[in-house]
Simulated assay, not measured.
Amino acid sequence: MKSELVTPSHLARKAVVYIRQSTPHQVVSNQESLRLQYALRQRARELGWREAAIDVIDADLGLSGASIAQRNGFKELVGRVGLSEVGLILSIDVTRLARNCTDWYPLLDICGLRGCLIADRDGVYDPGTPNGRLLLGLKGSISELELHTIRSRLTAGLLAKAERGELAVMLPIGLMRDPSGVVVKDPDMAVQGRLGLVFQLFLQLRSVAKVMRALNERDLELPRRDRYGDLCWTRATLAAVAAILKNPAYAGAFVYGRTRFRPPKREGALPQKAPRPMEEWRIVVKDRYPAYIDWPIYEKIRSVIRDNRAEYMRIKTRGAPRNGELLLHGIAWCARCGHKMYVRYKGGGEYVCNHLRTQEGQPTCQHIRAAHIDAAVGDAFLTALVPTFLGT
């Protein structure tokens, strides 16, 4: 069936069929929807386009329409419309083209400017006319609202299960679900023993790096899951040890909302996941899983790890003490600029603030002979211990 909106100037350009499904799972399972979208080629022929003048853009299969980020097919379509190469855009419905008005209205603007029609299964529209823009605008708004409604409905159910601690999330190594769905410890005693050793070593050594080195010096590997979910043993790394120590599931707690998305740093990039501080976790249900450590021990471990991070300027943590003859190696900070000082042993030993020089090319902030500082620190330490010894 032809449309009175289609003119020879439109037929002189290309008709583009835009095809998209939101997830790879839909691409595999919703084959009928895929066939209907590819069948729009016939619709273009009925509207007067020759077969050679019909192109199909399906580069966005498996990608969400919530944003144009990563949707190269949609970007190609907009670019071709801007070059006046396209006379008609066909899509099964407007939700295939965009799921938010921020992306939808610029497409309507450029189509109206270049005289490009938009068609779906309900009809053909001219974005350059008031009536056409009104109808397409309403369709776009309804599409955006539909996405919000779907997300809200799914999120409400997910949060309700999470608040009861019943949401089935991926469990760390050492925990598993039995046939009835109840979470139990891995029956492999080697796995249980190695995880317990990691927590024991950290409470003794108080450093993730020291735990890693202690395990590797003893040739003790850590249990991990491979890409298929099967148990495997690998050499200890900083990331692996930290992941075990920081996971609240080992303290018997179900936690939801440990991460958040940060806005992308550049246009077109995807939002990045970032961990939330413990006090900002959305849902915490304690005593939900069999525990390797109790919750107070877990909080102590997290506190030590946080304090070991040398970020005094941002989160006021002192850093971890380092090996060496000087007392404040690794935990001395500059009172002038607030940056960490390092130790230089040449010439008797001194504390040097060299951050601004190395990072910004400025003069060295200050350097102080270590003997006087260490003597004062030692005196203060012994003075603090005197009341304890006098009390005994």
Score class of each variant (00 low, 15 high):
residue 299 E to Y: 00
residue 251 A to M: 09
residue 249 A to N: 03
residue 291 A to I: 02
residue 218 R to K: 01
residue 218 R to G: 05
residue 260 R to E: 01
residue 223 P to Y: 08
residue 263 P to E: 00
residue 319 G to A: 05
residue 235 R to F: 00
residue 315 I to G: 15
residue 317 T to F: 14
residue 319 G to I: 06
residue 305 I to W: 01
residue 218 R to D: 09
residue 295 W to P: 02
residue 308 N to A: 02
residue 235 R to Y: 04
residue 278 M to P: 04
residue 238 L to Q: 12
residue 267 E to R: 07
residue 250 Y to G: 12
residue 233 W to G: 02
residue 237 T to R: 08
residue 298 Y to D: 11
residue 273 K to G: 00
residue 268 G to L: 01
residue 255 V to P: 10
residue 274 A to R: 15
residue 228 Y to W: 08
residue 239 A to F: 11
residue 261 F to C: 03
residue 239 A to V: 13
residue 245 L to M: 02
residue 317 T to I: 14
residue 259 T to S: 02
residue 211 V to M: 06
residue 250 Y to I: 14
residue 302 R to F: 02
residue 226 D to N: 08
residue 318 R to T: 14
residue 285 V to C: 14
residue 212 M to S: 08
residue 309 R to S: 07
residue 223 P to D: 05
residue 255 V to Y: 07
residue 276 R to Q: 09
residue 289 Y to K: 04
residue 236 A to H: 08
residue 293 I to T: 04
residue 247 N to F: 06
residue 230 D to M: 01
residue 243 A to D: 13
residue 273 K to E: 08
residue 260 R to I: 10
residue 256 Y to D: 08
residue 317 T to K: 12
residue 228 Y to P: 02
residue 306 R to S: 10
residue 224 R to P: 05
residue 218 R to P: 06
residue 281 W to D: 02
residue 274 A to W: 09
residue 291 A to K: 14
residue 244 I to R: 00
residue 212 M to H: 03
residue 280 E to D: 12
residue 312 Y to K: 15
residue 311 E to Q: 14
residue 256 Y to S: 11
residue 309 R to W: 11
residue 224 R to C: 01
residue 263 P to R: 08
residue 253 A to E: 09
residue 253 A to Q: 13
residue 266 R to C: 08
residue 281 W to I: 07
residue 296 P to D: 02
residue 215 L to M: 06
residue 258 R to V: 02
residue 235 R to T: 07
residue 289 Y to L: 03
residue 279 E to G: 09
residue 284 V to P: 13
residue 228 Y to Q: 15
residue 221 E to D: 09
residue 212 M to I: 15
residue 255 V to E: 13
residue 294 D to A: 05
residue 301 I to W: 07
residue 232 C to L: 13
residue 293 I to W: 07
residue 300 K to P: 06
residue 231 L to M: 10
residue 229 G to S: 05
residue 263 P to F: 10
